[in-house]
Amino acid sequence: MTIPVIQWHAAAWQQLQASRQQQRLPHALLLSGESGTGKAAFAAQVAASLLCEQPAADGRACGTCQACQRVAADTHPDRFRLAPEEPGKPIKVDAIRQLIQDLSLTGHYGRYRVVLLEPAEVMNANAANAFLKTLEEPPANTLLILITAAPARLPATIRSRCQPLRLKSPDRAAAAAWLSQEFSDSSRAEIELALRLAGGAPLLAARYLREEWLAARRRLLQALVNCATGHTSPLEAAGVATQLLKLDRQLPIYWMYYWVADFIRLAYDDNNIKNNDMTSDLQKLPKPVEPKALHQLLGKLQQARRLTESTVNPQLLWEDLMIDWSSLFAGQRG
């Protein structure tokens, strides 16, 4: 059974397979596109296609041969993955040197070798310089796939030595149709909400549905309401937030940021808020609140997002944010 290609990747897939049939595959591919559009999934399918023992006529991997089984088990010796040791950390030069050493050896199966590097833009300067040497003298029968949502952050010397391929985002109707097929148990309202929160990115919306992020977000926003009205202390609200960090370090920051932004926006246009499924909860928040203080909190949340990529103590970070949030409404609680 061949592995299907996501529908909005079809044009890029056909373009790449045409190059393959003409024996004009590049040695390095710069795969870019908006976050949540499936760049990693597309790159993985390209890798599976090149490693497959019996690909279909359109290039798709068969999904059943020994090579495909090894790919699925993440044990294929001719597929290499490079990523930061921890989220938010850079890809270091030692990892690139190890890759160069591995690629200097003969491939195990005599077919292609494929390198998946994501996110490519987080290579530090030494790593990028070492990787540049590989791009300048590429190994035979090897495809280097650099995956990024921010190609401009890569050095120009690296970009110029890769063939660019940008994946387009699907329109909202196509994304909703795909999600409805993938998550048949989810309601239309849940799918639309997930898509809106994901900024229209279907694979990010899929994570909202698959990993129960919608319920987690609601727990955080309800804690914000309770904190503002005095039913929950800032420390208790911070505890809710830190529990949610197990899902993702930055998502709770985004959720709170858009919640504060919606509270500001609510005074001007209640038809254009991101959290429109919780409009009634927003309207329960005590008023009036000094707009300047709200904008200052937005700035602090932006800074907090950057701090989550460091060694900052998350509990202390969230306690500080919740104390600031609670203090905005102290005068209205009586």
Rank of each mutant, 00 (worst) to 15 (best):
L29P: 01
E309I: 12
G299L: 03
D281H: 11
P138N: 00
I158L: 14
A206T: 12
Y109P: 06
A175Q: 00
A228Y: 01
P286K: 00
L316A: 07
C65A: 06
I158R: 07
P286W: 03
G36Q: 07
A215R: 08
I191S: 10
L282Y: 00
A44Y: 08
H231P: 06
Q302G: 14
E309V: 12
I273S: 05
S180H: 13
L285K: 00
A140K: 15
R305N: 14
A228K: 01
L117Q: 12
I158D: 02
P286N: 01
E192Q: 14
E192K: 08
N226K: 08
K39G: 09
Y254N: 15
A173M: 09
L203R: 13
W325E: 06
G239N: 01
R111Y: 10
Q315R: 10
T142V: 11
S35W: 05
A149L: 09
A130M: 04
R207V: 04
A67E: 07
V46H: 06
L197T: 11
D324P: 11
R161Y: 03
C227T: 15
A237F: 04
I323V: 15
I273C: 04
D262A: 03
I6W: 03
G110E: 09
N275Y: 08
A293M: 06
T2A: 10
A47V: 00
F80H: 15
K300M: 08
N272W: 11
A293T: 14
P139I: 15
N275F: 04
F42P: 05
Y257I: 08
R111T: 14
S326D: 08
D78E: 09
H295G: 06
P84V: 03
A261G: 11
Q21S: 07
R265E: 08
R97Q: 11
E136R: 14
E182C: 12
E85W: 10
T75P: 03
A215N: 08
L221C: 01
P155T: 11
K168Y: 07
V260L: 02
A206P: 12
S233M: 07
G107Q: 10
R196S: 13
G33M: 02
S184M: 14
F80N: 05
N272E: 15
W178D: 04
S280Q: 12
R81K: 09
D324C: 07
E192T: 13
Y208P: 04
P87N: 14
A128W: 09
A12V: 04
P55F: 05
N141F: 12
Q22F: 07
L51V: 04
S187L: 00
A293R: 15
L144E: 00
P314M: 02
D74I: 10
A238K: 03
T75H: 01
V93Q: 07
W318R: 03
W13R: 05
E34V: 06
R207Y: 06
L195H: 02
T37L: 06
P291Q: 12
A198N: 03
E121P: 01
H231V: 13
M256A: 05
A73K: 04
E236Q: 15
R306G: 08
M256C: 03
S184F: 12
